[in-house]
Measured scan of single mutants.
Amino acid sequence: PDFTLHWNGITIHFKGIDEEQFRHLRELLDRGVSLEELEELAKELIK
């Protein structure tokens, strides 16, 4: 499924991740993950 997340004025689209992965990403963003960390995470998910 696809998810869209609005965070700090940025709209991020996640394609092909499951709800569990999306929930994990939201928790990280709510905790204050940096954009660099988010990019690293995205690379991991894409593999």
Rank of each mutant, 00 (worst) to 15 (best):
P1G: 14
P1T: 14
P1M: 15
D2Q: 09
D2V: 15
F3V: 02
F3A: 01
T4E: 08
T4D: 03
L5I: 12
L5K: 00
H6W: 02
H6I: 06
H6K: 05
H6R: 05
H6V: 14
W7T: 03
W7F: 10
N8A: 09
N8F: 04
N8Y: 03
G9N: 04
I10G: 02
I10E: 06
I10H: 11
T11P: 02
T11H: 15
T11S: 06
T11W: 01
I12N: 00
I12S: 00
I12G: 01
I12K: 03
I12A: 02
H13G: 04
H13V: 14
H13Y: 06
H13W: 04
F14M: 11
F14V: 15
F14A: 04
F14R: 00
F14K: 00
F14S: 02
F14I: 15
K15G: 15
K15P: 15
K15A: 15
K15I: 15
G16R: 02
G16K: 03
G16N: 13
G16S: 05
I17T: 04
I17Q: 02
I17W: 04
D18Y: 04
D18C: 08
D18M: 05
E20R: 07
E20W: 06
E20Q: 13
Q21S: 12
Q21A: 12
F22G: 08
F22L: 08
F22N: 01
R23A: 12
R23Y: 10
R23P: 02
H24F: 12
H24R: 10
H24D: 06
H24E: 09
L25T: 00
L25Q: 00
L25R: 00
L25A: 02
R26F: 08
R26C: 12
R26A: 13
R26G: 09
R26H: 09
R26E: 14
R26P: 01
E27G: 11
L28H: 07
L28F: 07
L28G: 03
L29I: 10
L29N: 02
D30W: 07
D30R: 09
D30Y: 07
R31Y: 08
G32A: 07
G32T: 06
G32Y: 07
G32H: 06
G32N: 07
V33W: 12
S34Q: 06
S34P: 12
L35P: 08
L35F: 10
E36W: 07
E36K: 13
E37L: 11
E37S: 07
E37V: 11
E37Y: 10
E37G: 05
L38M: 05
L38S: 00
L38F: 10
L38A: 03
L38I: 15
E39F: 15
E39R: 13
E39W: 14
E40W: 11
E40T: 11
E40P: 01
L41M: 09
L41A: 10
L41T: 05
A42S: 07
A42N: 04
A42W: 13
A42G: 06
K43V: 07
K43D: 08
E44A: 12
E44D: 12
E44L: 07
E44I: 10
L45N: 06
L45R: 04
L45P: 04
L45Q: 05
L45D: 02
I46M: 11
I46N: 12
I46K: 06
K47H: 08
K47S: 13
K47I: 11
K47W: 01
